[in-house]
Simulated scan of single mutants.
Amino acid sequence: MSTLTSREFNQETGRAKKEALSGPVFITDRGKPSHVLLSYDEYKAVTEKRVTIGEMLSMDGVEDIEFSPSKVTDIAEAAEF
């Protein structure tokens, strides 16, 4: 992970691209993160379609999985103001 100012990014695009191969590069404007540069492979991994819980529960063999959740003992209470 590295951080570049927007000025550094504009002046050193090659460096930013090289650093993005080993992790995200955060680009800042006025000291605050404004953009993130990722390699294409990392971008694909982040945006890939994820499996929903419904799809997981309908998979073959799911009935063979043992699942015994513990009893919930925490009870929500109204906040006092």
Rank of each mutant, 00 (worst) to 15 (best):
G23W: 05
E19G: 00
R15M: 07
H35N: 09
L21Q: 07
R7M: 12
Q11M: 12
E66R: 08
K18L: 09
D64V: 00
P69Y: 09
F26S: 06
L21K: 05
F26C: 05
M59Y: 00
A76E: 15
E55Q: 14
K71E: 14
A76I: 15
D60H: 06
P33Q: 11
V72Y: 06
T52M: 02
E8G: 04
V36D: 03
L57T: 06
T13M: 04
A16E: 02
T73R: 13
P24N: 01
P24Y: 02
P33S: 11
T52K: 03
T28I: 04
T5K: 06
V46C: 06
R7F: 12
E66V: 09
T47Q: 07
S58H: 05
A76K: 15
V51K: 07
F81R: 14
F67W: 10
A78G: 14
L37S: 03
I65Q: 02
T52H: 02
G54Q: 08
K32H: 13
M1S: 13
P69L: 01
N10I: 09
E77I: 15
L57M: 11
F9A: 05
T3P: 01
Y43P: 04
T47P: 02
S68L: 09
D60F: 06
D41Q: 14
E48Q: 12
V51E: 08
K44Y: 03
L37Q: 03
N10L: 13
E55T: 07
A45Y: 03
G23M: 04
L21N: 04
S2F: 00
D29F: 03
V36Y: 04
I53Y: 08
R7K: 13
T47R: 08
E80K: 15
D29A: 13
M56E: 07
P69S: 05
A20E: 01
P33M: 12
D74P: 06
D74G: 11
S68K: 10
Y40C: 09
V62N: 09
K32F: 13
V72A: 10
S22R: 00
M56K: 10
K17Y: 08
L4Q: 03
D29W: 00
